[in-house]
Simulated assay, not measured.
Amino acid sequence: MSDNNQQGFSAEMDRARQRLQAISSLALQQFEQAITAYQNVNSQLAQQVLSQLQRAHDFELDMDDHCLDMLSHTASDRDLRLVLALLKAISDIEQICNQNAQIAQQVLLNTAAKPSIKQLEAISTLAEPVGTMLALALSALQQPGSAKAEQALSLAATVNRCYGAILRSNLANNVNQAGQVDTALGVDWVARALERIAEHSVNLAKQAVFMAKVSSGQSSRVELQPRRPR
């Protein structure tokens, strides 16, 4: 690649990272608002979270177009891998925004089946490591490296443990308490959304590590991560 092309690609990559930072900030803010809305049964805040979903979709479409334009000017394997990693990362972030909206949606459905204090505490216990994972993974993408990404990955076991505890508790309560099925299902939906956010955060953390390796010349291929159905 000529010097001019390389400079042009670097400038496009800088703009792509700025867009990535913008949608990352949106996803993190939306997550915090969704959890606050759920904990406080705040319908107005939940509606605000839902209203931001189209903006997240628009971010993804713009980023896709930007990356496709970058691909047309890419000649080196290194640059190609960076663009593909960005495309995968933006897809995960957009899916996180979708899960945030799922949590907000449950607020609007909770009017007839409000969670108990114990259930809300369990969701808060799960949301704490998930939020930390998300923040660390998004931060790692801005400054690709292993430290914050590894911290994010280390929380996966805690998330799985908290998620499993919620499912087991709700199952036991459903057996022993008639009329609690709708409430338990709503809590399970929120817990599932949080677990999916953690899963996408794991993908983001791995992409951050991969991009750091590519930038330093340590990786020679595109490392595709397995995906679950959306």
Rank of each mutant, 00 (worst) to 15 (best):
A127N: 05
N110D: 14
T111K: 13
C97H: 02
L82M: 14
E128I: 10
M133L: 13
P144G: 04
L134N: 03
A147N: 05
L82H: 02
N173E: 15
S139H: 04
A89H: 01
L155K: 07
H73I: 15
C67M: 10
L167E: 08
E94K: 05
I90A: 01
C67V: 04
T111N: 07
L153Q: 10
Q177W: 07
A113K: 03
I117A: 14
Q119G: 00
E128A: 14
L171S: 12
S76V: 13
Q95I: 14
N174H: 06
L68S: 05
L167I: 15
I93T: 07
A149C: 12
A104Y: 11
A149P: 03
Q105V: 07
A89R: 01
S76N: 10
T132L: 14
S72N: 10
T183L: 12
S91E: 09
L68A: 07
N174A: 12
L109W: 04
L136V: 05
L167C: 07
Q143A: 13
M133Q: 13
R81N: 02
P129Q: 08
A112Q: 11
D182N: 11
T132G: 06
A85I: 04
M63S: 07
I123H: 06
D77P: 08
A113Q: 05
A184W: 00
R168P: 00
L141N: 00
Y163H: 15
A127K: 05
A127Q: 01
N100G: 05
V181M: 15
N160A: 15
N176G: 11
L80W: 01
Q106E: 10
D182I: 14
G186T: 10
F59C: 12
L138K: 01
S139W: 00
A104G: 07
Q102G: 07
L86V: 05
R78W: 00
L109I: 11
I90C: 02
I117W: 05
A165S: 13
L167M: 14
S139Y: 01
F59S: 06
A127D: 02
Q142L: 09
Q95P: 00
V130E: 00
V175T: 08
S91T: 15
S116E: 12
L136M: 09
N173T: 14
T183H: 02
S124H: 08
L71V: 06
K88F: 01
N176Q: 14
V130C: 08
V175Y: 08
L84Y: 03
G164R: 13
G186F: 09
L84V: 03
A157L: 14
A152S: 15
K118L: 12
Y163E: 15
A152D: 02
A152Y: 03
M133R: 06
S76C: 11
T158Q: 13
H73G: 12
N100D: 13
Q99M: 14
Q143R: 11
I123F: 11
S72L: 15
L84M: 12
D62M: 09
L185T: 09
M70L: 14
L126V: 06
G186R: 12
A165H: 11
N98R: 11
A172P: 00
P144D: 08
S139T: 08
S76F: 07
S116D: 10
L87M: 15
V175R: 08
M63F: 11
D65T: 06
G186K: 13
A137D: 02
A127W: 01
G164Q: 13
G164W: 12
